[in-house]
């Protein structure tokens, strides 16, 4: 991916993240996730109805990579069922681990296709997806 385009997408999601702000409504499952490097700390809330992810929102303190990854994750997951969400999760993890993955399926998440080059930031990119891993079986 062109580095300028990549940066533009990342920065846009960092500065104007999708789903920012927790909701005080019923029907949400809240998951806290924080980085082992002890800095990033995000609360992510999922609303699931009839096996479909209806809404996701989040809040917390996190770096540009974690925040943008959360935003793009939310954008990619809303409206998906368990099987589709799991496919995205598996392919995203494969991309970060430098294993073969379905590029088309990941859409804007492809902006992290070179994050493996910075091992300390890989954790940041994975952070929001840890919450998905935790709730996927509840879908």
């Amino acid at each position: 991916m062109d580095p300028n385009l990549r940066r533009e997408i990342l920065l846009d999601h960092y500065q104007h993240p999708v789903g920012h702000g927790l909701k005080d409504e019923k029907g949400y499952i809240k998951i806290n996730t924080n980085n082992e490097s002890c800095i990033d700390n995000l609360d992510i809330m999922y609303k699931i109805k009839d096996g479909i992810i209806e809404d996701i929102c989040f809040d917390g303190e996190a770096c540009a990579i974690s925040t943008s990854a959360t935003s793009i994750m939310i954008q990619s997951l809303i409206g998906k069922n368990k099987e589709e969400a799991k496919k995205i999760l598996d392919n995203y993890e494969a991309m970060l681990d430098e294993r073969p993955f379905d590029q088309e399926l990941l859409g804007e998440l492809n902006v992290y296709d070179e994050i493996y080059k910075q091992p300390n930031r890989k954790k940041c990119a994975l952070l929001p997806f840890e919450s998905l891993r935790k709730i996927i079986d509840q879908l």
Binding site: C38, I39, D40, R121
Partner: peptide, 22 residues
């Protein structure tokens, strides 16, 4: 965010700590 600052400084080989310092 403090970690972004630390990563930025690292680009210039300047080592600082970001976080809540335990």
């Amino acid at each position: 965010f403090s970690q972004d600052t630390a990563v930025y400084l690292n680009h210039y080989h300047i080592c600082v700590r970001a976080g809540n310092h335990c």
